[in-house]
C-alpha cells in the first residue's frame, strides 16, 4: 500500500522559493529521514504532507490518481498525523490529551482500554493524571506520539522529534518510533540529527535548494523491508 505520494511540489514564501519540484513516495512500514539545513523547507514539506499547507503547484496521489487539493487535504489529514517540533499539549491531563485522539471513535466502550494501552506503550502510566502543560520536553514528545498512535494513522510526520531532548529522552523517543515502524506505520522524519535515526531510516533524503536528493541508503533499504522510492526531480 502506498499511503503518500507527492509529485512536483512547489512552494514559495514571498520571494523565497522553498520547494521547487519535490517528488516523494512513501510506503507503509517505512521510514524516510529528511535532512537539510535550517530553513531548507523540511517543515514546509512535512506540513504539505499533513495537509496543513497548500502547495502552489504539484499534486498529491493517494492511490486514486491525481486529485484536487481540497480532497487531497482531506485525505492527507485522514491518514496522517503531524507532530510539531515542540508538540502542543491541550490544557488538560495527559489522559485527556490522549482521549482527544479518540473523539471521533464511535466505540466508546473500548476508549478507556485503548487509552490505558497507549499510556502503557509510551511509559506514561505514572503521569497519566498530570497536567500535560507541566510536562518536560521528552514527556511531551511521548504524549504526542501516544496520542498520534491512538489515531491509528497510516503515516506519521515528525518535525525534529529529538530536538532539545536529553540523551535518555532521545533514546526513549527513538524506541517508540521503532515500535511504530514495526507496526506498519510509515514515518517521515525531518531532522538534522542523522546519527540518531540511522538504525530507523530506510532512506535518507536531503532537501537543498528546494529539491530532494537521495543520500546513501542505509542497510535497511537493501533488505527491501521498506520500499521508499527515491525522488524524481520534476522538470521546472
Amino acid at each position: 500500500m502506498q499511503p503518500l505520494s507527492l509529485h512536483d511540489i512547489h512552494k514559495t514564501f514571498g520571494a523565497r522559493r522553498v520547494l521547487q519540484g519535490a517528488t516523494l513516495e512513501l510506503n507503509t512500514g517505512t521510514c524516510c529521514l529528511l535532512t537539510g539545513a535550517n530553513g531548507a523547507g523540511k517543515s514546509t514539506l512535512l506540513r504539505i504532507c499533513a495537509g496543513l499547507e497548500k502547495p502552489e503547484a504539484g499534486y498529491v496521489d493517494l492511490g486514486a490518481g491525481r486529485i484536487r487539493w481540497k480532497r487531497a487535504r482531506r485525505d492527507l489529514q485522514r491518514q496522517s498525523v503531524y507532530l510539531h517540533q515542540q508538540p502542543y499539549m491541550f490544557d488538560s491531563s495527559v489522559r485527556q490529551n490522549l482521549a482527544y485522539a479518540l473523539h471521533r471513535h464511535t466505540d466508546k466502550a473500548t476508549h478507556q482500554t485503548r487509552i490505558d494501552m497507549a499510556l502503557d506503550w509510551a511509559g506514561l502510566t505514572p503521569i497519566a493524571h498530570t497536567w500535560a502543560k507541566q510536562l518536560s520536553g521528552g514527556e511531551r514528545q511521548r504524549v504526542a506520539l501516544a496520542r498520534a498512535w491512538l489515531r491509528s494513522p497510516n503515516i506519521m510526520l515528525l518535525d525534529e522529534p529529538t530536538n532539545n531532548l536529553d540523551e535518555e529522552a532521545k533514546q526513549r523517543t527513538l524506541a517508540l518510533l521503532m515500535s511504530l515502524k514495526a507496526q506498519g506505520i510509515g514515518l517521515l522524519i525531518a531532522s538534522h540529527e542523522n546519527n540518531y535515526f540511522h538504525r530507523l531510516a530506510d532512506e535518507t533524503l536531503e532537501l537543498a535548494n528546494g529539491q530532494l536528493t537521495p543520500r546513501t541508503a542505509t542497510p535497511h533499504s537493501i533488505g527491501n523491508i521498506v520500499k521508499l522510492t527515491s525522488i524524481r526531480q520534476a522538470t521546472l
Binding site: A50, L52, Q77, R78, S80, V81, Y82, H84, Q86, P87, Y88, F90, Y100, A101, H103, R104, R147, A148, R151
Partner: peptide, 14 residues
Amino acid sequence: ADKRAWETARTLGA
C-alpha cells in the same frame, strides 16, 4: 493563541 492548538486538533481528526 498558539496556532499549534488548531493544527494539532485538525491533525488528530477534529
